[in-house]
């Protein structure tokens, strides 16, 4: 009895959940060949999770870039180094802001939708019906959504970065009068391929994390309206914290 009670304590619950997520990932990977044989299922999910997130990603990217432009200009003008704005904006977007903010937006826009969709499919027996029809719901429903998210996030990040740099350019060069040539040439000078690689690695890891959390929470949601609602909330909360923690870990590892 005491053992049973201690099993329900918070740290153990967290560890058990981590184990469950890991096993779930294995199950998805086992079922992935089914989805990979049906690329149309995956491309539909790239459309769902990725293309439909474009507007929010581009709008946010532009405003984040503009803020970076403003703050960067303010800081560099105190040092009379305004010409460095292009390089600083690009580095902060490519290495940090792009991957992190994109993953957070993805969790809010696409992750929640995935969780709610899978959770409701489960609650309404659609996944059980597939099982009885001898169709693996993990392969047919979960794996394509996971893979779709995985593919979409790095591309969304790249688009976020490009639009963000344009936002910084718009504020720095067009509004504040930083030299156009200096803006781009300093960027070219200081942004190395390692910086870009760091951004790509982060966006891929965040893509896995955000998609996995979303499908896991959906698949394990309580089969009630309240359960699906709570699972959706958990997707946003867990993904956000996880992305920030992973961001620190990857940064400390790569720098």
């Amino acid at each position: 009895m005491a053992a049973a009670r201690s099993l329900s304590s918070a740290p153990l619950r967290a560890i058990r959940k981590l184990g469950a997520v890991a096993l779930f990932l294995l199950t998805i990977l086992q079922s992935a060949p089914y989805a990979l044989r049906r690329p149309r299922l995956i491309s539909a999910q790239v459309q769902n999770a990725g293309v439909l997130s474009l507007v929010i990603i581009m709008t946010s990217g532009f405003f984040v870039g503009m803020v970076v432009g403003l703050q960067g200009y303010d800081a560099f003008s105190r040092l009379r180094q305004e010409d460095l704005l292009g390089a600083a904006a690009a580095l902060s977007l490519i290495k940090e802001l792009g991957p992190v903010v994109t993953a957070l937006l993805f969790a809010g826009r696409a992750g929640t939708a995935l969780t709610a969709e899978i959770g409701l499919m489960r609650a309404t027996d659609q996944l059980s019906a597939m099982e009885v029809m001898a169709i693996d719901p993990i392969g047919r429903i979960v794996a394509p959504r996971f893979l779709g998210g995985l593919i979409a996030v790095p591309f969304l990040t790249a688009i976020f970065n490009c639009v963000g740099i344009l936002g910084a350019y718009f504020v720095g060069v067009q509004m504040m009068g930083v030299d156009n040539g200096a803006f781009w040439s300093q960027m070219q000078e200081y942004v190395s391929s390692e910086d870009i690689r760091e951004g790509i690695i982060k966006s891929m890891v965040f893509g896995v994390a955000a998609s996995l959390v979303a499908v896991f929470e959906g698949y394990t949601a309580d089969r009630t309206a309240e359960g699906v609602g709570l699972a959706t909330t958990r997707t946003v909360v867990i993904t956000s914290v996880l992305v920030l923690v992973l961001d620190y870990m990857i940064t400390s590892f790569l720098l």
């Binding site: 409701l120 309404t124 659609q126 059980s128 009885v132 001898a134 169709i135 693996d136």
Partner: peptide
């Protein structure tokens, strides 16, 4: 799965795939 291919089940709440039309549900 082989055994289940020879079974059909009618769920109490029908369990139709809500994203697919009637035709696509039956064709599934």
């Amino acid at each position: 799965f082989e055994l289940r291919r020879h079974m059909g089940m009618l769920f109490q709440n029908s369990a139709l795939l809500t994203g697919d039309s009637v035709f696509d549900n039956v064709a599934f």
